[in-house]
Simulated scan of single mutants.
Amino acid sequence: MDNNFNNGSNWNNNGQSDNGSWNTQGNGTDQNGWSNNSQSDNGSWNAQSNGTGQNGWSNNSQSDNNSWNAQGNGTGQNGWSNNKQWNDQQNNGWNGGNNNSSWNNGNNNKGWNGGYQTPPPVQRQPVFFNGILNRSLLKEEARAIFKGNYWNAVLAVLLPSLIAGGIAAIVPPVGSIISWIFSPILIVGGLVLLLRIVRGMRNAGVGDIFSIFDKFGNVFLAYFTTNLFIGLWTLLFVIPGIYKSFCWAMTFYIIADDPDISGTEARRLSEAMMEGHKMEFFILQLSFIGWALLSACTFGILGIFYVAPWMATTNADYYDNLRMLYEARVGYRS
Rank of each mutant, 00 (worst) to 15 (best):
G231D: 01
T226P: 03
T264S: 12
F229P: 00
E265H: 01
I254C: 09
V219P: 09
A249W: 08
K215W: 11
G241H: 02
A256R: 08
F216M: 13
D260F: 03
W233P: 00
W233G: 02
I242C: 01
F220A: 15
K244G: 05
W233Y: 13
T226H: 07
T264P: 00
T264L: 12
D214F: 01
S245F: 06
V238W: 03
F210C: 11
T226N: 15
V219I: 15
L228S: 13
A222M: 11
P259G: 02
W233A: 14
F213G: 09
F216E: 09
G263L: 04
I255A: 04
D257K: 08
K244Q: 08
I230F: 01
I209D: 08
F224R: 09
F229A: 04
V219Q: 09
N227C: 01
F220S: 05
F224Q: 12
Y223N: 12
I230S: 07
C247S: 03
F252N: 10
N218S: 15
Y253E: 11
T264Y: 07
V219H: 11
V238A: 10
P240H: 01
Y223K: 03
A222Y: 07
T251A: 13
T234R: 00
G241C: 04
T234Y: 00
F229Y: 07
T225V: 13
I209E: 09
A249S: 12
Y223I: 03
G217T: 11
L236K: 00
T264E: 12
L228Y: 12
D214G: 10
K244M: 09
A266E: 01
M250Y: 05
L228P: 06
T251P: 06
G231S: 04
G241Q: 04
A222Q: 08
I239G: 05
D257T: 12
L235T: 05
L235M: 10
G263F: 03
C247W: 00
I209R: 09
W233L: 12
A249R: 11
I212P: 07
M250C: 09
L236R: 00
I239H: 04
F229Q: 08
C247E: 06
